[in-house]
Structure formats: structure tokens, C-alpha cells
């Protein structure tokens, strides 16, 4: 019991604590803390904008990603699913900066503005959706065919099999996709500043432009902490939405 606790403690918490202490020390050393306290109102506005970017783009990505992933597993689409997957895979390899640049360049062609929060949201959404589609598809596909056969043979309808068997059993993999995606988006959201989307990127890019580590860290450190915090929340959520019968015994 004790040794188990100690192992967990050393494996999980010690590295995180060390990282946080170093970052906070840098944060203070370069005057980021001082800068933040001086501009507290702006700090909260940037956090708010950042969260809006993350929450809205992720909510849309989860809804669309899971739906698309599930649709791709249906029998009728068996033929074209590999094609969609290939597109999704290529899409995922486009770097975040590239996605932002694409939004800036392509949206005006469609008659929309390439500047502001809307193009930023579209770009982030497009970037977030790929891992979720991939994981949902892989998760549902990986549900054992024996389980599906016995559900069918017992007289469950297609809909019951999807909602009571396939999605719940794919949940650990789907949640994995959501967590990956969220981590990427929290980290990519600062780039939204480049096309006028606001958020903590404002301080990061200002800091870089002025070669002022303090201002840069005042933007970058909250982004990192936010990523950790959101991931922690999702880990909690995972414990709720994934059945105990298929939960991994311990999160690495």
C-alpha cells in the first residue's frame, strides 16, 4: 500500500512539481509576475479570450469529430472510410501555424474575413477535429466482433448496439482523442493572435517582438498551466464517462 503510493508519487507528481517550480522561478526571475500584476485587468481579458477560443473550437470539434468518426464506421460507408481516413491523416500533419495561415488565406476567397475571432475559431476547429475523428473511428472499429455478434444475435437493434455497446466500449479511445486534441488546441490558440483572434498569444508575440522574456513568459506560462489544468479536468471527466469495466487500472 505504502510502496504503491510512493511509486505513484514519484512517477507522477515529482516530475510535475519540479517542472512547475522551475517555471515559476523563471516567471518571477524575468519579471513576468510583476508585469502580470501591473496589467491584471488585461491578463484576465486575455485568459477569457483564450478560453473562449479553446472551448468553442473544442465543443464544435468534439461534436463534429465524434459524429463523423461514428458515421465512418457504419456498414454503408465501409468503402469510402479509408479514403476519409487518409485525408484526415494528411490533414493532421499540417502544422498549426499552417492551419492558421490557411484560414487567413482561404476564407477571403469564400467571401469571409480572414481576420478576427471567427477565422481563428474555424482554424482551431479544423486543427482539433482530426485526432477526434481518428480515435472515434479506431475506437468503434476495435470493439470486439464477438461482442457485436452476440448483441445482434440477442436481438438488439442497430441503434441500441451503437449507443449501448459500441460507443461506451470505444469511450476510452475517444476520450484519448479528445485529450490529445485539447492539449494541441490550448497550445495552438496563441497563434490566433496572428490573425487578430486575441488570447494569450498577444503577450507571447509582443514579448518576442520586444525581446522581453518577462512579457513573453507572462503569456506563455499561463498557457502551459491552462493546458495542464484542462487535461486534469478531462481526466476527471474520463473517469465519469468511461465504464469501470473497461477503465485502465491506472493512468500513466
Amino acid at each position: 500500500m505504502t510502496s504503491n503510493f510512493l511509486t505513484t508519487f514519484f512517477r507522477k507528481f515529482v516530475p510535475a512539481l519540479v517542472a512547475i517550480v522551475i517555471v515559476l522561478w523563471l516567471y518571477k526571475y524575468y519579471g513576468a509576475l510583476e508585469y502580470t500584476l501591473k496589467n491584471l485587468a488585461e491578463f484576465f481579458r486575455l485568459i477569457y479570450e483564450h478560453l473562449i477560443l479553446v472551448i468553442i473550437s473544442m465543443a464544435a470539434a468534439i461534436a463534429v469529430g465524434i459524429t463523423l468518426g461514428v458515421i465512418m464506421t457504419r456498414k454503408a460507408l465501409e468503402g469510402i472510410s479509408p479514403v476519409i481516413m487518409a485525408v484526415v491523416n494528411v490533414w493532421q500533419s499540417v502544422p498549426s501555424l499552417g492551419v492558421i495561415a490557411l484560414a487567413y488565406g482561404i476564407l477571403p476567397l469564400l467571401g469571409m474575413s480572414g481576420i478576427g475571432i471567427v477565422p481563428a475559431l474555424i482554424a482551431l476547429f479544423m486543427h482539433a477535429v482530426a485526432p477526434i475523428v481518428r480515435n472515434t473511428y479506431a475506437g468503434v472499429e476495435s470493439v470486439s466482433s464477438d461482442v457485436i455478434e452476440s448483441a445482434t444475435g440477442m436481438g438488439m437493434t442497430q441503434k441500441q448496439i451503437l449507443f449501448d455497446i459500441e460507443i461506451p466500449n470505444a469511450m476510452p479511445v475517444i476520450m484519448g482523442g479528445v485529450r490529445t486534441s485539447t492539449a494541441i488546441i490550448v497550445g495552438t490558440a496563441p497563434l490566433a493572435f496572428l490573425i487578430g483572434g486575441g488570447g494569450l498569444g498577444f503577450w507571447i508575440f509582443t514579448g518576442i517582438a520586444l525581446v522581453d522574456m518577462g512579457i513573453m513568459l507572462a503569456g506563455a506560462v499561463p498557457v502551459a498551466l491552462l493546458a495542464m489544468f484542462v487535461d486534469y479536468l478531462l481526466a476527471m471527466l474520463e473517469k465519469v464517462v468511461v465504464s469501470k469495466g473497461i477503465q485502465a487500472d491506472q493512468y500513466a
Binding site: 464477438d146 457485436i148 452476440s150 449501448d164 455497446i165 466500449n169 465504464s243 469495466g245
Partner: peptide, 10 residues
């Protein structure tokens, strides 16, 4: 069936 097919989430 042979591999039982119990639903692991239930």
C-alpha cells in the same frame, strides 16, 4: 457464442 461476447462496459 464461443467467445461469450459479454459486454465489457456492463
Amino acid at each position: 457464442i464461443q467467445n461469450i461476447g459479454l459486454f465489457p462496459n456492463m
